[in-house]
Design a protein around this nucleic acid. Structure first.
Lengths: 329, 329
DNA sequence: TTGTACGCGTTATCAT
DNA sequence: ATGATAACGCGTACAA
């Protein structure tokens, strides 16, 4: 900056001002400074700026998985909203593990982000302590709780599971099974679904748990497992499968086709997430929609508002969910 | 740090040393310092550290799309490799636009990353200038060129397109069409494929261009377009479709099923990328595999090596590709 | 093994 | 409208 200043015939401070508050610099010094910046190829050092101003313009985000499109599409919206306000997002994957998340939180906090986004409401005690100590806005997403660390934006997974149970039962379906990923929120939906459906139908609800990341292959294997080893009987409209993600449901759909089972004639299938492809499958997939775009925007807005005026926002925002009926049920 | 030091009865520097070079501090002062850190909840300020040491331990990565699993899975591997060496990745989406990329490069450079990863080999002149001026290791991935900015790791897209053309022709297929996303590299593959296949078969190769992000829906619409408006005739093993991604190929597969076309009996389908689901489709998808895990690791290693000893690495690494034959051809 | 002095490149404050 | 000066919180060099 000093070098740029010399070239423009002003002091270092004026260069700083020209960059941060151009309106406080006279038009022609501003021009000289901008020319000098152009000539020298000067790029301001945001580290030094952040150190001096105590604002990093960084917002950190921790999501379970980068490759799971549910989270990556959400975080893309989130990042976009923030970029428009001059923030950059520092993104990491926790791999669904609270311990790893806690370690990442420490690393992230060392970069002094102006705010932080966390996925889910379950964090280690140490993580909560550090976050409270950091004294920055925090938003937890994809879930709802009465006692957020700071704010949360999401929906109620138990209600979602129950709603699907009621929906299928209303359709006249009397037998159901579930295919569930290791994701803790998925398990909560599955449990709520199974409890409610069992209560309505008087029949147990077998579950096939999948290992590793949700995938089409895992969905195929899970349906095979349900039919071949867990005694799921399939036939004219008696059974339905509630899958913890659209990807698993997609796999179940393919496996059903490969077995010559009609969907929904022999078996109905419900996904979760309403990903883009759900409407393009054949048959199109019934699923539970969550407004991911809105979720990303609301999370960004919550943080921005709180950074801006520090005012206490509504700490809990329930975005709800919608069952999208399509041809697979 | 000074406060921690007071609590432990040492100076600020010793605390710094305890954190960065614990072996240079006597065991019991180390313990006192660690206790003090525990008690105070001290989290080091990486901004100040980076400013003082001129090493940010940040590596920035620019990819076209977060939601495209090809890139997100690659960058997940890349980040993982780097995390093991104490680096954090600052990730942004360019949306396939060199102008936006250039703007992002400036923002990223202001955080003083120790190295940078770029996707592709086409960048604006300004971007190249800034990168050269920044004097940090740069790796360009997913493509190959003789004149990288610094280093590159990828494969030859023209050769890939030609290889698929030869492969299909060898299978006895004499008519082909393509479904291509707006991605510049995809277009290069498509052109190379079309030129070669036309030369081999003596027939033109119609193309359906898709708008927006690659998706199953786009693949379905593209196949419909090829058949209904571009005069693609389908029938016993005469035609093949080369899609620029597995996702588009998946859509084409679904559309073919929905139309009662047999795959590969009436139409053969080839994807690109060998994503996880390719082997789980019915029929399993023939595709072109690129070792994304290795690509991520090699890119990370290239940067780490160069940060480490500054030695000139092999600047161009060709990872090649493999045609994976499955049931869809 | 530990400490002192200094500087990293910016912003905030106050003065002119 | 512009400048001088003092932080910001750490790492490095050097000294003890």
């Amino acid at each position: 900056m000093a070098a740029v200043g010399r070239l423009a015939g002003v002091s270092q401070v004026t260069v700083s001002r020209a960059l941060s508050h151009p309106e406080k610099v006279s038009p022609d010094t501003l021009k000289r400074i901008r020319d000098a910046i152009e000539v020298t190829g000067f790029v301001p050092n945001a580290l030094a700026g952040a150190l001096a101003s105590k604002r990093s313009n960084l917002i950190s985000a921790l999501i379970p998985s980068l490759t799971n499109i549910v989270y990556s599409s959400f975080v893309a919206t989130f990042s976009d909203s923030l970029r428009q306000h001059g923030y950059q997002v520092l993104l990491s994957e926790t791999g669904f593990d609270p311990q790893d998340e806690a370690a990442l939180i420490t690393t992230h906090l060392s970069r002094r982000p102006d705010a932080m986004l966390l996925t889910g409401i379950h964090h280690t005690a140490q993580a909560r302590r550090q976050l409270l100590g950091a004294d920055i806005p925090v938003v937890e997403v994809w879930d709802i709780t009465d006692s957020p660390i700071d704010m949360c934006v999401g929906f109620n997974h138990v209600e979602a599971g129950r709603a699907v149970a009621a929906y299928l039962h209303d359709l006249g379906i009397r037998q159901a099974a579930t295919i569930t990923a290791r994701d803790e929120r998925a398990v909560r939906r599955q449990t709520a679904f199974a409890d409610r459906f069992a209560a309505l139908s008087g029949r147990p609800v077998p579950d096939a748990n999948t290992e590793g990341p949700a995938s089409i292959g895992a969905g195929r294997r899970a349906l095979r497992d349900l039919i071949e080893t867990k005694g799921l009987t399939v036939g004219p409209t008696v059974g339905a499968i509630f899958c913890s993600s659209d990807l698993l449901a997609h796999g179940a759909l393919i496996e059903a086709h490969a077995r010559g089972l009609a969907v929904p004639g022999d078996i109905a299938i419900v996904g979760f997430g309403d990903q883009n492809f759900a409407q393009d499958l054949d048959p199109a997939l019934t699923t539970v929609a969550v407004d991911r775009v809105r979720l990303g925007q609301m999370a960004a807005r919550a943080l921005l508002d709180k950074i801006g005026d520090g005012a206490r926002q509504n700490p809990v925002l329930d975005l709800g969910f919608t069952i999208i009926q399509r041809a697979s049920t």
